[in-house]
């Protein structure tokens, strides 16, 4: 953060040096650096009178830097203007992970993410996470959005858990026979066909098929297995699987997928 911030009434500076970021990426140990276009935009903004800054036209990383730059002067109006613009952008990014939520749940999620971003913007000392906001605002917000979404899903699961797992387990208990033998085998030919079909379908048909799955857990299992290539189970304990992720047996996961396949086929007009 630039410590030699002029007041808003100061004349524009002729040659402004943008303070470098000070934290390192933990994995590589290299200092975080801003994109060159962000650096250039910050430098250009700092040469102008802050009263002329237009938040809508500035990159988010630049806005974050300028808010931090203005903060020591406690110019609440300017800070509010910039934060408001960042808030709108956070809402748009958070919306990308709000599928399946109601409007109010999605807004709540976005507001929670915005609060987290505020804490990073106004952190009294820089950290690698606060610096990351000036490296990639979008990735930072998306990462926080995904974490918040995970919390929302977790809360919803707790509410659903009793009734759902009750029926799933009773289904598993009574679902031996053909389903059971399918579940104990590796990926079935039927599953391979479904995977190929889903990957071949036009995006809107995929969405239609997924929307027809009534259980969110079944839907997640189908997406992860058929569209993101997650195995149901693996002999290698280091490989994440649907079974470890959901904490269910291979047979139970296969039952979920079988139930979902029926619903998808019906929705696509191929009822068996």
């Amino acid at each position: 953060m630039d410590q030699s911030s002029p007041t808003t009434t100061d004349p524009p500076l002729s040659a402004v040096r943008v303070s470098p970021l000070t934290q390192t990426a933990k994995k590589t140990g290299d200092l975080y650096v801003r994109h060159t276009d962000v650096e250039a935009e910050i430098a250009e903004a700092l040469e102008k009178d802050p009263a002329t800054w237009t938040p809508k036209t500035l990159k988010s990383e630049t806005l974050v830097h300028l808010v931090r730059w203005v903060r020591p002067k406690n110019d609440v109006e300017l800070i509010g203007k910039f934060i408001r613009e960042l808030g709108r952008r956070i809402a748009r990014i958070a919306k990308d992970v709000a599928s399946g939520l109601s409007k109010s749940e999605a807004e709540e999620l976005a507001a929670d993410v915005a609060a987290k971003v505020n804490c990073l913007i106004f952190a009294s000392a820089p950290s690698s996470q606060s610096d990351f906001l000036e490296v990639s605002f979008r990735y930072c917000v998306k990462r926080h959005s995904l974490k918040e979404r995970d919390k929302v899903d977790e809360r919803k699961l707790h509410v659903l858990a009793e009734s759902f797992f009750g029926s799933a387990q009773s289904g598993a208990e009574h679902g031996d026979g053909i389903l059971g033998s399918l579940a104990d085998s590796a990926t079935t030919p039927e599953d391979l066909a479904m995977e190929a079909e889903l990957k071949r379908l036009a995006p809107e048909r995929v969405q239609r098929a997924l929307a027809a799955i009534t259980s969110p857990l079944h839907r997640d299992a189908v997406i992860l297995h058929f569209l993101k290539d997650w195995p149901i189970k693996s002999n290698d304990p280091q490989i994440p699987t649907l079974s470890t992720h959901f904490g269910m047996s291979r047979r139970q996961i296969q039952n979920w997928i079988n139930a979902a396949k029926e619903e998808m086929r019906t929705a696509l007009g191929e009822a068996t």
């Binding site: 934060i83 919306k95 409007k103 999605a106 976005a110 609060a115 997406i223 569209l227 993101k228």
Partner: peptide
């Protein structure tokens, strides 16, 4: 992954979120 695949999103009142952030 799940959010990446599902494309149907609810409407969000951006101004509401922005005001709460401010």
């Amino acid at each position: 992954a799940v959010q990446d695949v599902q494309t149907e999103r609810p409407e969000i009142d951006e101004e509401l979120v922005a005001s709460r952030m401010v």
